[in-house]
Computed example of a mutant assay.
Amino acid sequence: MTNMMTSTVLISFLACLLLVNVEGQVGHSKTRCLCLNGMVNHVKPVLIEKLEVYTSKHSCQNMEIIVTLKNGKGMKCLNPEAPFAKKTIEKIMKNQRSVQ
């Protein structure tokens, strides 16, 4: 009886250790990028309501620039390598520095 109880406790303890170890490991998670349906190189500035920049993360290796259009016309993914995107990001960074 004592051996069976000791075995049960030992197995339960090892199972708990295994669960803690597995839970803390980084697995091969699915990519959770927002820009999956292609990108545009330019958006007319007068149509832009909001611009969001997402740097690369473990869930998505790509830098993503999401442009929300005015008048509820949806969202576009802006190509981060396009000259328009680079100039726009540079302008935003410059404005943020001058505000601080």
Rank of each mutant, 00 (worst) to 15 (best):
Ser98Cys: 07
Leu69Thr: 03
Thr55Pro: 05
Thr55Ser: 06
Cys77Glu: 12
Ser56Ile: 02
Gln96Thr: 12
Tyr54His: 11
Ser12Trp: 02
Asn41Glu: 15
Pro83Ser: 12
Met5Ser: 09
Met39Cys: 04
Glu90Asn: 08
Thr88Arg: 03
Asn71Glu: 15
Val26Lys: 08
Asn3Ser: 13
Cys35Ser: 00
Ser12Gly: 13
Cys35Met: 01
Cys77Pro: 11
Asn21Ser: 13
Met93Tyr: 04
Leu69Lys: 01
Thr88Asp: 00
Cys35Asp: 01
Ile89Thr: 02
Thr8Trp: 00
Asn95Cys: 08
Phe13Asp: 04
Phe13Leu: 14
Asn37Glu: 08
Cys16Ser: 09
Glu52Gly: 01
Lys94Phe: 08
Thr2Glu: 09
Leu34Phe: 09
Lys44Arg: 12
Leu18Gly: 13
Gly38Tyr: 07
Met93Trp: 11
Thr6Leu: 02
Thr2Met: 10
Asn71Lys: 09
Glu23Tyr: 12
Leu18Val: 00
Thr88Tyr: 02
Leu34Tyr: 03
Val53Glu: 14
Leu47Tyr: 14
Pro83Asn: 08
Ala82Cys: 02
Lys57Gln: 14
Cys16Asp: 00
Val20Glu: 12
Thr31Val: 14
Gln100Met: 15
Met39Gln: 15
Leu34Ala: 04
Thr6His: 08
Tyr54Ala: 08
Met93Gln: 14
Met63Leu: 15
Glu90Trp: 06
Glu49Cys: 06
Ala15Gly: 00
Asn62Trp: 15
Leu69Gly: 11
Lys86Ala: 14
Ser7Cys: 01
Val9Ile: 05
Val22Asp: 10
Pro80Ile: 13
His42Met: 10
Ala15Glu: 01
Glu52Asp: 15
Leu19Phe: 15
Val40Cys: 05
Gly24Asp: 09
Val20Cys: 05
Asn21Ile: 05
Arg32Tyr: 09
Ile92Gly: 07
Leu36Arg: 03
Ser59Asn: 05
Asn95Arg: 11
His28Met: 11
Lys73Asn: 09
Asn79Gln: 07
Ala85Ile: 04
Arg32Leu: 15
Leu18Trp: 12
Pro80Asn: 14
Thr8Tyr: 02
Val43Glu: 05
Met39Ile: 10
Lys86Gln: 11
Leu51Ala: 11
Thr68Arg: 12
Leu47Ile: 10
Gly24Leu: 14
Cys60Phe: 08
Asn95Val: 11
Pro83Arg: 04
Asn62Ala: 15
Gly72Trp: 10
Ser7His: 04
Cys16Ile: 02
Leu14Glu: 00
Ser98His: 15
His28Phe: 06
Asn79Val: 06
Gly74Phe: 06
Lys91Asn: 06
Glu49Gly: 11
Ile89Ser: 07
Ser59Ile: 12
Cys33Pro: 00
Arg32Val: 15
Leu19Arg: 07
Gln25Pro: 01
Ser12Ile: 11
Lys70Ala: 10
Leu10Lys: 01
Met39Ala: 12
Lys73Ile: 03
Val46Phe: 07
Lys87Leu: 06
Glu49Lys: 10
His28Asp: 13
Asn79Ser: 10
Glu64Asn: 03
Met63Tyr: 14
Thr8Ser: 01
His58Trp: 15
Cys60Gly: 07
Leu14Phe: 07
Asn3Gln: 03
Glu90His: 10
Lys91Phe: 11
